[in-house]
Simulated scan of single mutants.
Amino acid sequence: MSAKIPHAHLDAEPVSEINETIGLLLHQVRLRLIRHLECDLAAGGFGINFSQYRVLRTLSLRELVSPTEISRCCGHDAGALTRMLDRLQEKGYLRRVPRTDDRRAVDVTLTEAGRAVWREIQACGLALSSDALSDLSATEQQQLFEMLKKVRGTLDQRPYK
C-alpha cells in the first residue's frame, strides 16, 4: 500500500511507509527546506543560493575564518569554495585578509555589506524554520530538537568502518 506524499513531484516516486527510513525522511525534509529557502531568497532579490547562505552563516559566527574551516563546515571542496568566495567577494559581502603568520594564507571575513545581507537572509531562514515547525506545539518542537540531537550524538559516537 503506497501512501502518496505531498509534493511527490519533488521525489522520484511515492514512498510507502514501510520503506521510509529516518535517513530518507530527513533527506526529503532537508531538500524541501533548501528549495523553500532558495525560493524565498530569490523572491527577496538577494541573488544568494543555499550554498552561499551557508558560507555567509559560517562567516557570521566568527570574525576571521580560514577557507579550510569554511570548506569543512559547508562540505565544499577547495575549488568550488574558491569560486563561491570569489562570487561573494565580487558582491562585496566578504573580503580575504592576509594572515600575519603565513603570507601564503588568508582568512575570510564579512564586510559591513555582508553583515547587513546576512541579517536579512537570516531572517528568511528563521521565518522558514518557524513556518516548517508551525504545526508542532512548543513542546513538540523542543522534543524534536532533543531527539535529533540525541540521534546525532549516537552517530558521532559510532566509529566509521
Rank of each mutant, 00 (worst) to 15 (best):
S2P: 00
I5Y: 00
P6S: 00
A12K: 14
E13K: 00
E13N: 01
P14R: 01
V15S: 06
S16H: 11
S16T: 12
I18V: 00
E20H: 06
E20R: 12
I22F: 13
I22M: 12
G23S: 11
L24E: 11
L25C: 08
L26S: 12
L26K: 11
H27Q: 15
V29Y: 08
V29H: 05
V29F: 10
L31M: 13
L31P: 01
R32H: 15
L33M: 15
I34W: 04
I34T: 13
I34N: 02
R35S: 13
R35L: 14
E38W: 04
C39T: 14
D40F: 07
L41S: 05
L41F: 07
A42P: 02
A42N: 12
A42M: 02
A42F: 07
G45Q: 11
F46Y: 15
G47R: 08
G47W: 06
I48F: 02
F50E: 03
S51V: 11
Q52W: 04
Q52S: 14
Q52I: 04
Q52F: 05
Y53F: 15
Y53C: 01
R57Q: 14
T58N: 01
L61T: 08
T68E: 10
E69K: 02
E69G: 00
C74K: 01
D77W: 05
A78Y: 10
A78H: 12
A80E: 13
A80D: 14
R83T: 11
R83E: 03
M84F: 01
L85E: 05
D86H: 07
L88W: 05
Q89E: 15
E90T: 12
E90Y: 08
L94K: 06
L94E: 01
L94D: 06
V97M: 10
P98C: 01
T100V: 09
D101N: 15
D102K: 11
R104V: 01
V108C: 15
V108Q: 05
T109D: 09
T109C: 14
T109N: 07
L110M: 11
L110I: 03
T111M: 04
T111H: 05
E112C: 00
E112T: 14
A113P: 02
A113V: 03
G114H: 10
R115I: 04
A116Q: 15
A116M: 13
A116R: 15
V117A: 09
W118Q: 09
I121M: 08
I121N: 02
Q122N: 14
A123G: 06
C124L: 12
G125Q: 05
G125V: 04
G125Y: 03
L126T: 10
A127C: 05
A127W: 09
L128A: 09
L128E: 14
S129L: 14
S130W: 15
D131T: 12
L133C: 12
S134F: 04
D135K: 11
D135Y: 13
S137V: 00
S137L: 06
Q142D: 10
Q142I: 03
L144G: 06
L144H: 06
E146G: 00
E146M: 08
E146C: 05
M147L: 11
M147I: 04
L148D: 05
K149R: 14
K149Q: 10
K150H: 06
V151N: 00
R152L: 07
R152A: 09
R152C: 05
G153F: 02
D156R: 07
Q157S: 13
P159R: 08
Y160V: 11
